[in-house]
């Protein structure tokens, strides 16, 4: 279909505007991360959009190198929070994908599970804030407070609905003829699942796992309530990057923010094809 030139011009103008608005906050944080202290402290007319003398000082600072310009040293470096985020989001993903994949297969093939799908949907509907009191009481009782595995366990439960619904739609699409052929060969049902279906589902499994990982990595509220000193995750730790003397350490925050933002953006672009399916609980397949 031919479009008039005017439409093409309008389209590029509109998209350019949208792209600019999309990129400004990201670009600003990136620029701040590479600015030396004097530049990220600048305000008003002295702001620079592009770092005049780009430096890695902010990154060195959050990993423990003291800064002469700031006269502050960090009590704790960003290394442990990054480890905490990785461990809790990683193992949370493992729990969600393990339980979710098994349940999805059970439901997709054997109609097992009863009310499970609806219960999981409901789990997603609830604000996490509204179930945290009992979780905090239980976690204290079980000594899971402020540990990465306590956080991983709750992440696994919170993202279970996504893992389940995603994998269910993938299993629903998987041709049964292949499984039936293996059954005729004399494989048990469970062996077919393990040795035939799962290996052939490697790509959907990987995309779903990345999707669930992004969700876990993005959490703030739960970590804020369940961790404090020992195993604070990146966003929780970020709040401590300020001091009474110098106020907000924007440069350090921007550097850490950049570190936190990069993995999910890359993962998200990698699984772009499946994003719609994941976000709509498999109701929409692109």
């Amino acid at each position: 279909m031919r479009r008039p030139i005017a439409f093409e011009v309008f389209r590029y103008a509109a998209i350019a505007l949208a792209v600019a608005i999309t990129l400004v906050p990201i670009a600003w944080m990136t620029s701040m991360a590479f600015k030396p202290t004097a530049e990220w402290q600048a305000t008003g007319a002295n702001l620079t959009w592009w770092p005049k003398s780009p430096t890695l000082d902010n990154f060195r600072f959050i990993f423990g190198q003291s800064s002469t310009a700031l006269i502050v040293a960090l009590e704790r470096t960003a290394a442990k929070p990054i480890l905490s985020s990785l461990l809790s989001a990683g193992f949370g993903t493992l729990i969600a994908m393990g339980a979710g994949t098994a349940a999805a297969y059970g439901l997709s093939r054997f109609k097992a599970g009863g009310n499970l799908p609806l219960a999981l949907l409901q789990l997603r509907l609830f604000p996490p804030m509204a179930v945290m009191i009992p979780v905090m009481v239980m976690w204290t009782f079980l000594k899971l407070n402020d540990t990465w595995f306590g956080l991983a366990l709750i992440y696994g439960i919170v993202t279970l609905p996504f893992a389940f619904w995603l994998m269910k739609t993938f299993f629903d699409d998987f041709p049964r003829e292949i499984e039936e052929a293996a059954l005729v060969e004399g494989c048990s049902r469970f062996r077919v699942f393990l040795k035939v279906t799962l290996p052939m589902m490697a790509a959907p499994l990987a995309s779903s796992a990345l999707f669930v990982f992004i969700l876990n990595w993005s959490d703030y509220l739960i970590a804020l309530l369940l961790t404090n000193r020992e195993w604070a995750t990146i966003p929780v730790y970020m709040a401590s990057l300020s001091s009474s003397m110098t106020g907000q350490l924007y440069g350090a925050k921007a550097a850490l923010g950049l570190i936190a933002a990069v993995p999910p953006v890359i993962a998200g672009i990698a699984i772009q094809r499946h994003l719609v399916r994941g976000l709509t609980f498999g109701a929409l397949k692109q």
Binding site: V19, T22, I26, M29, M32, Y250, K253, G257, G268, Q272
Partner: peptide, 24 residues
């Protein structure tokens, strides 16, 4: 590019806009 914002960790997005909306 247009899909990027929804993949940014919301807490980090909070810091981005916190910085953007400072009076200076």
């Amino acid at each position: 590019i247009l899909l990027m914002p929804m993949m940014v960790v919301p807490a980090v997005a909070g810091y981005m806009f916190f910085m953007l909306f400072q009076s200076g």
